[in-house]
C-alpha cells in the first residue's frame, strides 16, 4: 500500500503541474513545459505535444515570447551519437498525427534569456500556426512531465 502511494505521488504532482491543454482550430497543444535554466545560461527550450488527430495538414510557422531576445524553432538531427541542432523554418503538423516537441528533438529555442527560467514559474508562449492561427499557451517551468 505504501509502495502504491509512493508510486502515485509523482503522478499526482505531475498531473497538478502539467495538466494543461490548449486548443486552437482542430489542434490541441498539450503539456507545454520548459526545463529550469542555470543563472548563466543564455538559452532555454520549451516542449509540448500537438495533437492534430482531427484536423488537416498544418504547420507551426513561428513562436513568440517576451522572455528572450529571440525565439526560434529548432530540431536535432542525430548522426551516430552526435547531436546536431539546427534551426528550422517551420514544423509540420500532418493531418491525423501527433507531433511531440521533446528533449533531443524538435523544440522551441529561446536565445538571449532576459532572466533564468525558474522552476514553478510559468510564462506565455504564442504559437502561430499556418491554418489554425495563433494561440497563447502557458509554459510550466519544471521537469519533464510523465506524459511525454
Amino acid at each position: 500500500m505504501k509502495r502504491l502511494l509512493l508510486l502515485l505521488i509523482p503522478a499526482l504532482i505531475s498531473f497538478q503541474g502539467f495538466a494543461a491543454e490548449f486548443a486552437v482550430g482542430d489542434l490541441v497543444i498539450k503539456h507545454p513545459w520548459a526545463r529550469p535554466t542555470p543563472p548563466v545560461a543564455d538559452a532555454g527550450a520549451a516542449y509540448f505535444i500537438v495533437d492534430n488527430s482531427r484536423g488537416a495538414d498544418d504547420r507551426l510557422l513561428s513562436a513568440e515570447a517576451d522572455i528572450s531576445q529571440r525565439v526560434e524553432l529548432h530540431t536535432h538531427l542525430m548522426e551516430g551519437d552526435v547531436m546536431m541542432m539546427r534551426k528550422v523554418d517551420t514544423i509540420e503538423m500532418p493531418a491525423g498525427q501527433t507531433v511531440a516537441l521533446q528533449p533531443g528533438g524538435l523544440h522551441i529555442m529561446f536565445i538571449g534569456l532576459q532572466a533564468p527560467l525558474v522552476e514553478g514559474d510559468r510564462f506565455p508562449l504564442t504559437l502561430n500556426f499556418e491554418k489554425a492561427g495563433a494561440v497563447i499557451v502557458e509554459v510550466a517551468i519544471g521537469q519533464q512531465p510523465n506524459a511525454q
Binding site: A41, D42, A43
Partner: peptide, 13 residues
C-alpha cells in the same frame, strides 16, 4: 557547451 539549450541540460539533469 553552456549555450546548449536542450541536450546538455537534459543530460546533466
Amino acid at each position: 557547451y553552456t549555450f546548449c539549450p536542450d541536450v546538455c541540460p537534459t543530460t546533466l539533469a
